[in-house]
């Protein structure tokens, strides 16, 4: 397929995954606003911001003391993360970019996928935070579902060409990076909290892993067990291992790129990230450091994939 098209569907996959991931984070967090302590609410906001590698609009000194302030501030923070045009990773910005990539690559995706995504875009286009603030969880839930539907429609209707592979590769790489970022945010922030279990149940819900955890370990939440499940369980679709394996599988299914060196490097990086989680994780003394290595590996993978298939030098490229 055309290199630029591959790049377009790859980024479409990444942006939509980002929009969905952040919507899910916000959905769970705005539910917590109703009945959780101020400490927990603040912890949640900090975790989201750290995951997205962003500072809140008022900088680091934004933490108010009283509940009222927390609620008022929540509106501002939700707005910053949801509709803020200047925030490149806000739900809106990610959805808009995903949709723009889809618009440019409409010939690579199915009509059903485009229609689904365009409707989601049109629904959100004229909204502001004030419009969703009565039931924000419903808005975020719907946004997640719309992207779920898009992915489901891709599964059901998209031709299994390279475009399909590159879209899924983008989704998998984005999932790994966001999940690593969230887990690191949780562990780093959690260390400073008195309640060591704060936020871990939310981590399970975020990754649709609550039922699996209960089945495996019962109802007592232990951070180390949650970590194991989220990082290395091969049966959990949202685990790091599953996402890394998905990236490697998509790469395997794509024909060798014109830059043979970069192509081989990309396949090695995907394999290495999987091996780190599969083999190093159980014995790792410093798991945060291991997660950072996985993160670096997937970032390198991103760059190498683009080198191999999109930005390759034409001098040695095969002519067909």
């Amino acid at each position: 397929m055309l290199s630029r098209s591959a790049q377009g569907v790859y980024w479409m996959g990444r942006y939509l995954t980002r929009a969905q991931y952040l919507s899910r984070l916000l959905e769970l967090h705005v539910q917590a606003l109703v009945d959780r302590s101020v400490e927990e609410i603040h912890f949640g906001w900090r975790r989201i911001y750290r995951t997205m590698k962003r500072f809140p609009p008022a900088g680091e000194s934004w933490l108010p003391e009283a509940d009222e302030f927390a609620l008022a501030d929540s509106f501002t923070l939700a707005d910053d993360l949801t509709f803020e045009r200047s925030n490149p990773d806000s739900v809106w910005s990610s959805l808009e970019r995903g949709r723009e990539n889809a618009r440019q690559m409409r010939h690579c995706i199915s009509a059903e996928m485009w229609s689904c995504l365009n409707l989601a875009y049109l629904r959100m286009r004229d909204l502001e935070t004030v419009d969703i603030w009565r039931t924000p969880e419903a808005f975020y839930g719907q946004t997640c579902n719309e992207i779920h539907n898009f992915v489901g429609l891709a599964d059901a209707t998209m031709y299994r060409s390279s475009a399909w592979r590159f879209m899924r590769l983008g989704r998998a790489i984005e999932r790994v990076q966001l999940a690593v970022s969230l887990i690191l945010a949780q562990t780093e922030l959690g260390r400073r909290m008195k309640r060591r279990t704060l936020g871990w149940a939310g981590m399970l819900r975020m990754h649709h892993a609550s039922e699996a955890y209960s089945r495996l370990y019962g109802i007592e939440i232990r951070p180390s067990r949650v970590l194991d499940l989220l990082a290395s369980d091969p049966l959990l679709p949202a685990s790091l291992l599953s996402s890394v394996r998905a990236a490697a599988a998509e790469l395997d299914a794509i024909a060798t790129g014109p830059d043979a060196e970069a192509d081989a490097a990309a396949r090695r990086l995907a394999g290495r990230a999987g091996a780190m989680i599969l083999y190093d994780w159980p014995e790792a003394r410093d798991r945060e450091e291991l997660l950072r290595r996985v993160d670096r590996c997937t970032r390198d993978l991103h760059g190498t994939v683009l080198d191999a298939f999109v930005d390759y030098g034409i001098q040695d490229a095969p002519l067909r």
């Binding site: 055309l2 290199s3 490229a317 002519l319 067909r320």
Partner: peptide, 19 residues
């Protein structure tokens, strides 16, 4: 996406340059 090489037109694809 296109380039001309030796009087032929090629496009950049993920598998190399295709006429």
């Amino acid at each position: 996406d296109l380039l001309v090489n030796d009087g032929f037109v090629y496009m950049r694809t993920t598998a190399g340059l295709r006429r």
